[in-house]
Design a binder for these strands. Sequence first.
DNA 1: CCCAACTTTCACGTGAACGGCAAGGTTGGG
DNA 2: CCCAACCTTGCCGTTCACGTGAAAGTTGGG
Lengths: 156, 156
Amino acid sequence: MTDAGVRPAESTRLLRIHEAAAEVGLTARSVRYYEELGLLKPAARSEGDYRLYDESDLERLRFIKGLRDDAGFSLAEISQLLEDEAARERDHVAYHATADPRERLRILRDRVASFEQQTQTLRTKIGRLQAMVDETEARRQRSLARIAEIERQAPE
Amino acid sequence: MTDAGVRPAESTRLLRIHEAAAEVGLTARSVRYYEELGLLKPAARSEGDYRLYDESDLERLRFIKGLRDDAGFSLAEISQLLEDEAARERDHVAYHATADPRERLRILRDRVASFEQQTQTLRTKIGRLQAMVDETEARRQRSLARIAEIERQAPE
DNA sequence: CCCAACTTTCACGTGAACGGCAAGGTTGGG
DNA sequence: CCCAACCTTGCCGTTCACGTGAAAGTTGGG
């Protein structure tokens, strides 16, 4: 209970939408669209209502971009995947607002569960891709076998 | 030059578009659209111009569907990925048309190269997904560490 | 041969994921 | 205080990947 104002630096500078978007390789339009879909909310707004993004926003945007580009998820699926974390995001404020360790633990544990859900989903996708690789490998082997056979029958 | 009509059994029954589509979990419209994009061509057409698909067509359709659903590739990317094989597909006819072992070897070798290209692309994608998994795992670990720390400082 | 069920091509409609513009407000250096 | 460069909220346009008829032709069992 000592030391009242526990809200010091946040250390990272806040970025405006174009800066933030460029930082993670997106367009401002996309970022606004993602917000419209409820995928994220800027950490703050300026006096004149400019969107302001912090480092955790950038992480989130990078994650979204990864899910979209690398994993090929639709924004609806991403929304689904981040749904839990979106609820936690509301807790994020609560996390910094409360000093109650029990509350903080609850929030952190939910977050861990969310991460586990995400890795699970990603691993499932990896599994399906691996199956496709195996399939293709098998087809390659079959072709190699036929090549060998032909070479046996008609050596050049 | 002996034996004019060399087109005997093909063994597998030919399916019409709805049957083929249902078999691989697609719609007839999608299959026609894929043909329009040049992703495949039915093995044959009936007297009255009905599309007729054989087993290799189904394999191809399943592969396309896998690339679309599991890998999340766009149809343009899939087209790119199958491009080589599409050229080989034209060779497919040639393969059965020729009895020349040297020509058959060339076709088979090209096919092997195409398979290797495909697995390479898929493995790259798997790598990016794995990186995301690692990232998420790291974040989970960090949360776990903070949980442990809080539990040390304020044991319930 | 007939007819219901399937298919053809053509064409317009739709939802997702933005792009781009207009009309106005905000920032911040000079 | 001024103004260029940024931002805001609409809102309409576009591309992709199909969905959904319409109008006509094909298949195949009875």
